[in-house]
Structures are given as C-alpha cells and as structure tokens.
Design a protein around this nucleic acid. Sequence first.
DNA 1: GTGGTCTAGACCACC
DNA 2: GTGGTCTAGACCACA
Lengths: 124, 124, 124, 124
Amino acid sequence: MDFDQHKSIYLQIAEILCERILAGEWPPEEKIPSVREMAANVQVNPNTVLRSYDFLQQKGIIFNKRGIGYFTETKAVERIQSYKKEDFYENVLPDLFKNMKLLNIEPNDIIERYQHYLKSNDTL
Amino acid sequence: MDFDQHKSIYLQIAEILCERILAGEWPPEEKIPSVREMAANVQVNPNTVLRSYDFLQQKGIIFNKRGIGYFTETKAVERIQSYKKEDFYENVLPDLFKNMKLLNIEPNDIIERYQHYLKSNDTL
Amino acid sequence: MDFDQHKSIYLQIAEILCERILAGEWPPEEKIPSVREMAANVQVNPNTVLRSYDFLQQKGIIFNKRGIGYFTETKAVERIQSYKKEDFYENVLPDLFKNMKLLNIEPNDIIERYQHYLKSNDTL
Amino acid sequence: MDFDQHKSIYLQIAEILCERILAGEWPPEEKIPSVREMAANVQVNPNTVLRSYDFLQQKGIIFNKRGIGYFTETKAVERIQSYKKEDFYENVLPDLFKNMKLLNIEPNDIIERYQHYLKSNDTL
DNA sequence: GTGGTCTAGACCACC
DNA sequence: GTGGTCTAGACCACA
C-alpha cells in the first residue's frame, strides 16, 4: 500500500474504507477489520488506523463496541453519500469552474472525456 | 490579509502572485515587489515571503537579479498555465469524474451550473 | 563540526550527506538520522538541517515518510554521481583547460601530480 | 552582458578585466575604461564596477590616478599569472583530483579532451 | 517521536 | 537598498 505523501495517511485510509463501504463490501452493522488487522494490511502504524476509525466514528459512518470491534452504521452509505455530495458542490465544482474559465476549457471537452472515462471503467 | 489556516501561508502567497501575473499585473521581465515590501503588504514575516519567491523561482516563474530584486520570467504566464493545466487533468478532472459516477450526477447538470457560474461572474 | 564560512552551512551538510551515501553508509531506502538528531550532531539549528534535507529531497536523493523520517532514495547513489559528473564536465574541466592554456601547463604535469595524489591517499 | 547569478558580479567583472589584460588589450601603464563607461558597457551599477576596480587595485593589478582614471600596473600580467597559478594549484587541481577519483575518470580521458579543447580553440 | 511552518531578529554580502 | 542565511523558539499536524 503506497500513500500520497501530500495528504495525511489517516484520511486516505478513511477514504478507502468509505469506498469499500459504498461498494457494498460490508452490509450495515457488519464488523470491519480490527485496527491491528487493518494496520498490518496497509503496513501502517496501528495508531494511524485508529485515528481513521475515530474519524469515521465521529462522522457517524462506523461505531465501536468496546472489546469487540468497529461496525458499519446502519445509515453508513447514506451518510457517506451526503458528505461526498456536500464536498462535491462546495469544493470540487467551484474548483472545476475556476480552472475551466482560467484555462479556457470548453464544457464539451469535459463531457467527451467523461464518456471515455465511463467506457474505460465499464470494461474493468 | 487573511489566510486559509489549512494551507501554508507561503504557498498561498505564491498562488496569489501567480494569479496577479496571469492577470497581467507585471509584464515579462518586470520587477515584482521586494521581499520586505511584500512582507509589509501582506503582514507576514519576510522569511515567509522569501520562501514564496524561492518556490516560484524554482518553478521558473520568477528569477532573481543579485542585489536588485525578483523579476517575472519571460515565459512566466506560459509556465503557470502549464502547471495549472497539469493539475487540472491529473487531479481535478479525475476527482470530478469519480464523484460524478459515485453520486450519479449527469454531465448536463454540470454544464448548466457552469453557465450560471459564468453569468454571475460576468456581472462582477 | 566546523564549516567553511564561505559556503552556506545547509549546502555543506547536504554535501557531507552525499559523500556518506556514496560511501555506502546507508543502503537504498534506509532511514537517515532525524532532523533533530543530525542538528544535535553537527551543532546546528534544526531549521538548517531541515533545509539540507529539503534540498536533497528536491534533488531526488532522499525522500520523506510522514511522521517517520527521511530515507535514501533507491537510486540515490546514481543521482549523486550524475550530478557530480555534470558539474565535472560543465564546470571543473572547462575551468581546468582554460587555466592550463593560460598558464602553459603541460598535461603530463597534471598526470604526474595525480599519481602522487593517489599514492598519498592510499596510505591513509 | 549576462552574469552567472551564483557568483558575485564584481568578481566576474574583475575576472573579465584580467583576461583582457592577459590578452594584451592594454599595455602596462595604459588607461582602462572609466568606471562609468564600463558600467554602461556591461549594464551594471557603477558602484559594482567601482568595487571591481577597487578589488584589482588591492591585488596590485591596476592603480588609480585621482581625477584621471585607472591604469594597468607595470607588472599587471605577472601578478595575474601568479594569482591564477596559486588558485590553480590550491583549488582547481585538488578539486579535479577529488572528482576524478570519485567518478573513476582516467587521466587519459582528460588528456584526450584537452587536445580537443586546444584544437577547437585554435580555429577561432 | 517525526517533520513543517512561522516569527522575530540578527548578520552578511552584494548592488 | 536588495536578497540570503542562520538562530532560537514556538506551535502544529501527524505516526
């Protein structure tokens, strides 16, 4: 597992966990890997994984049963989607628009590239 | 001058300088404010401004004449645009597409919002 | 640790590190001393050491793992040699030739002195 | 006139003057260009040229007649050669040898390159 | 523990 | 006047 050195690792781990939850890897209320197990998997200090889990718990995406482990919240998927939506309209889109204007990029160019993106991902 | 606490100040200063160069505030080979002057303007320690200038010099956007000051490179604008373009296609766009697919957002929605964005900026 | 007052300390530290890497003190991907540790060793402010490390990182000779420390790049030795070679053929050699011609020094003189140099270093 | 930004300009001007003296541009006791004239020629602040002249005067290479100008010393050429010789054996040569050993460069390579150097300069 | 950023202030070489 | 370097010390996020 190699991480982007410019973003904090615990956020990258949280991000990956969210995507796996969205992908349906764990149904609601299912146990996710223990801190130690996850740490061993991604070759990272357990404290760092703990921080990811803590972060996701505060966001209402997972919860903890003492002595047992961490579990997906019932509404984990909805929560994640809601956060992503907020981030999308607050950050991603304004950033996109600013760059499009500055670099004189046509909306059609974006659409075309998106079609390609969908196709290339379909075949995976 | 107030800065975003989440990004380092020296990078924000560099960013602002780039936008002022793009806006044509200094033609190619023109002298930009001295380190001390800029530091006084944005209420920041001169060392911090120096770091911004150093950063931009390494990026080939400004250069230094000994004992005189910093000057915009002949190709400063091209360089900045090239960096921005790379960031756009490498980071912004993939991020956008990933989110669009995940959140089931239609390209038409994006375009529509972009047109609103352009209109609201025109009136400024 | 005493430094040459005519060159900046951070570059001299970088230079020393390069020579230690060339000497094989740290294999590829090995952790080098932390900023604070090195600063204590050479009796210098940690900021100054950090600057050396930053410099070497930009040259692709060492890299950083967040919260852990700096490590030698896999190709550190090759990179250093390549930089030294470039400097040699671009600066040292032209300087030598210019002086040889100007001072009317015969190549044989140089070779002879080089053999003496090698011998005197062998005995160390 | 464009200068190497890494060395101080006044030393570069002094260096150029020395080479012109060695080339016989001004016989002993001949007047060299005034500070202002030289400053205009090389596009530099007169203070900087003055510093060069001052430097050369301290080295016994030129001397000043108040109100008239700067003149080459009778033994200017000998002095310059002596300084260059000292620099050569103290700095250039040790630097060369260190690099040759480190980069595993054969003396024959140096000689060969020197022959090429002489040829290419002859034709100029 | 690690590095990263920022400040305040000093000193220097250079133009 | 210009930038460049260094120090001392603080504070922070991160592992």
